[in-house]
Amino acid sequence: MMHIISALVENKFGAFNRVVTMFSAKGYNIHSISIGETEDPTVSRMTIVTEGEDKVIEQIVKQLNRLIDTIKIIDMTNQPKVQRELMLITVSYQKGTRSEIIDICEIFRGNVVDINNRTIMLEITGPPDKIDAAINVLEPFGIKEIARSGTVVLRRGEQIRKLPKEYESDHKKINGDKK
């Protein structure tokens, strides 16, 4: 079964590599992975989509926790959450098909971000199944290139403080003092 794991890690040299190395050393599969800074610049959030039986997922979560640079690991699979992926897709068009493609883009609430004589580039965001659906519909027009960002997720609702107070970085404490 697919699982979505959200990991808060130190925004440090090598931290990302450590996580990826763990997956390859233990033979676990990574379906998609995305990483970016959070509201605290010393912390990055990694969203990892992986697949495995419950026993494997349990080991993955434990092994991630065991790394020194990981601060918090949450299996988001069964949590109330918002899940998004961004896709840039370049499709070729002929006379007459351009407006059809733009219609489809609108149905998926995407944007046209680039166009030339032969191709059109769309930006579509949504949960992965919506992205898959858009690809399916655009397929007959001739897809030239696709770039997908990988999944990102956040839990719904008001958040309890992500990190216990004492783990907050100095950066945040300093900023807090300024207020």
Partner: peptide, 16 residues
């Protein structure tokens, strides 16, 4: 050596 020893150490550091 940090890259080489990543899977065989509890942790490693490059002091920059």
């Amino acid at each position: 050596i940090c890259g080489i020893t990543r899977p065989i150490t509890k942790h490693n550091f490059l002091v920059r």
